[in-house]
Nucleic acid binder design. Sequence first.
DNA 1: GCGACAG
DNA 2: ATCTTGTCGC
Length: 266
Amino acid sequence: MTPPPPPRPDLAPDAHLERAEMEAMQREIAAAAVFEDDFSFDPATLGNPLGTASSGTETPLVAGVDQSFLTNEAGDQDRALSAVVAMRGGEVIERVHAVTSLEIPYVPGLLAFREGGPILAALEELSCDPDLLLFDGSGRIHFRQAGIATHVGVVLDVPSVGVAKSLLCGEPRGDTENLSPGTHVPIEANSRVDADEGTLLGYAVQTRQYDSPDRSINPLYVSPGHRVGPETAADAAAALATTYKLPEPVRLADSYADEAKREYTR
DNA sequence: GCGACAG
DNA sequence: ATCTTGTCGC
């Protein structure tokens, strides 16, 4: 048996670090991360309606996390609003959000240092404790294999998955245009990634697709955050995307972030 | 110098 | 991420 990885509050994203220090911390995060299944719930029941699973294990509690930003009188984005929607068996169990001041601008590869603080603040407001966290952004598909899903997952030691709408880095192992729904294509490490060339980082997952060849829906780029393997990450995203392209927890967190934002705009 | 670049 | 109405198509 592998020893249970402990939470790592010492690796919480600090927006005041220098860039080199942030990158060094990400290498630590990647080293501490577990990119394989290491959880107790039954992933096969993630998409189940509700109630107790037939096997006796309870349907997993999944939380989606997303952010919206508040603008200042001057016109600058000075605050982040992080929203969390917890669901079980397709039903919303709890919704919470937190508003914190923004410290740094968006920099590709350093997203966790901009949004990690707000996210941790929102998750502290949650009274339930999720079996799985879904983030809007990358996990292992990251220059240093430490995207926001991996970073937050390691800090809290909670299984997590990264769900991005566009590819940050890595190379699809095949065509990702006009994929059929239910299809997935491997994303491998390339020269831009701090990993052996060809390492499986995640999958391009096609959850929805139009029938007509006229237009097409782009796939999601799903990768392990922490304590989840690439296949399980892709399966979970697909199983939770019941009605729309995005997994329901993430989609609802997205709309809730906008909804809650209005309450501050007035 | 050039290209790439989650949200 | 954000600014934003209507509009094309099933």
